[in-house]
Design a protein around this nucleic acid. Structure first.
Lengths: 242, 242
DNA sequence: CAGTGGTCTAGACCACAGC
DNA sequence: CTGTGGTCTAGACCACTGG
């Protein structure tokens, strides 16, 4: 039977359908890695032409939530920001090849009274509990990035029962699996610090690059705040504008 | 009469049409700022459905070469990279408002024997002549960015007859007007310099950000190489990944 | 008002994946 | 072989622009 969608004036059909599909992704009705129903079936369900469905899906593909594979179907994508921080640094191993560093959680703890400014980002009470982590990214035995991570305790309490060694190389798939929290976009801000000291990076009053990151879930709420640091001398960022 | 397009196997029609339109833009058949023919007329000319024309135009719009305005038409865009360098720095005037600095050509000269590495980028003989410029970007009387620019003399000789003061705030529209050279994309690489001295920036052995830029024309050839420098303490870059 | 791009339809046929 | 997404058609009607 056709799904009823509100035909209020000025609402574009493909926008409404995009919104409906996004809702289902947020609710986990269609799981990450699984295909969503075919365009033909969706067209029938929403009682629109297949072109309209394609337009709606196109928006979600360009937003990074879906992936189309010809002949197979349209799949729910696990957004991958694993390289997003790393793209700011020269990352070569001993052989000169580009390589992703390995992530390691150095410590994780519960903050009974979280940091007020960060609770404000999360939309929580100013002294709500938080989870705090320190994390490193290592390549060839050298720590390249040192990170401090804050999470709202009300959504991520499950992480407190996880052993440090059980965190994988990527945190966001872990968030999804253990806390049902899907990160769909991140904002990053880079600044320069003339003199940073950091135990993991093994630097003392040296120049560094600081990367602040705000991570958003499907509803647009901030669900993680992170500060990452790397040596300024490792900094290298390339971008193309068309 | 319909334009003949080669229907060789595996060639998508909208790709061929995109290519044909891009050719006309490169040849200046349709001028910057002017509208191209309507979708209806193009569909007739290429003897395809209007949806196919829309797809071809969509590609060029997302590539930054065209702009659609509903009810008016589809226009040839002057790509604008004026803010691209500036997006890496905190740019506030005395009142705290974001503002674009003003560009000024400090010197321009002809290099009888150009720099070999740069001639290689241009695809010229290793000692071909080049044009060299030094340029500053100033806000509230303070130089924020200092630039060195190299151009192939064979394409930009006309610039040597221009008075320094007659260069506008933006160089690329000037390249188009005087040298019929349209810049359509740029690649930029940022790195950190622990100790730079620069007369314009008024710094001496201080930390700086270096931005190398390669600018491309419609044919994909590099037509400008530029090195820009700013104070590391001014550095601030924000990006969103979805 | 006529002309533009924006949305939408109800199909057709093709290319590809996988059984 | 069936089912998927990819391309393409030949229209329709709407929303917006400008004379």
């Amino acid at each position: 039977m056709p799904t009823v969608i509100n035909l209020s004036p000025k609402r574009l059909r493909y926008e409404q359908i995009r919104h409906e599909i996004q809702q289902r992704l947020a609710q986990g009705i269609w799981q990450v890695g699984e295909p969503i129903p075919s365009e033909h079936i969706l067209a029938e369900e929403f009682a629109v032409s297949i072109g309209t469905i394609r337009k709606a899906i196109e928006l979600l593909v360009s937003g990074g939530l879906l992936v189309k594979i010809q002949g197979k179907g349209t799949f729910v994508r696990q957004p991958d920001f694993s390289a997003s921080l790393c793209r700011f640094f020269r990352h070569r191993n001993k052989n000169g090849e580009i390589q992703l560093p390995t992530g390691k959680v150095e410590c994780i703890q519960r903050l009974e009274h979280g940091i007020a400014e960060i609770n404000q980002l999360f939309g929580n009470a100013h002294d709500a509990a938080q989870i705090y982590m320190e994390r490193t990214r290592t390549l060839d035995g050298t720590v390249l990035v040192s990170e401090k991570i804050w999470l709202p305790e009300n959504r991520f309490a499950a992480l407190l029962n996880v052993d440090k060694a059980d965190f994988g190389n990527l945190l966001y798939p872990f968030y999804l699996e253990r806390c049902a929290c899907l990160i769909v976009s991140v904002k990053e801000q880079l600044t320069f610090m003339p003199a940073l000291s950091d135990a993991y990076l093994q630097i003392n009053q040296e120049a560094a690059i600081k990367i602040c990151r705000w991570a958003y879930d499907l509803s647009g709420a901030i669900v993680e705040y992170r500060e990452s640091f790397g040596r300024a001398s490792d900094f290298c960022y390339e971008t193309i504008i068309a």
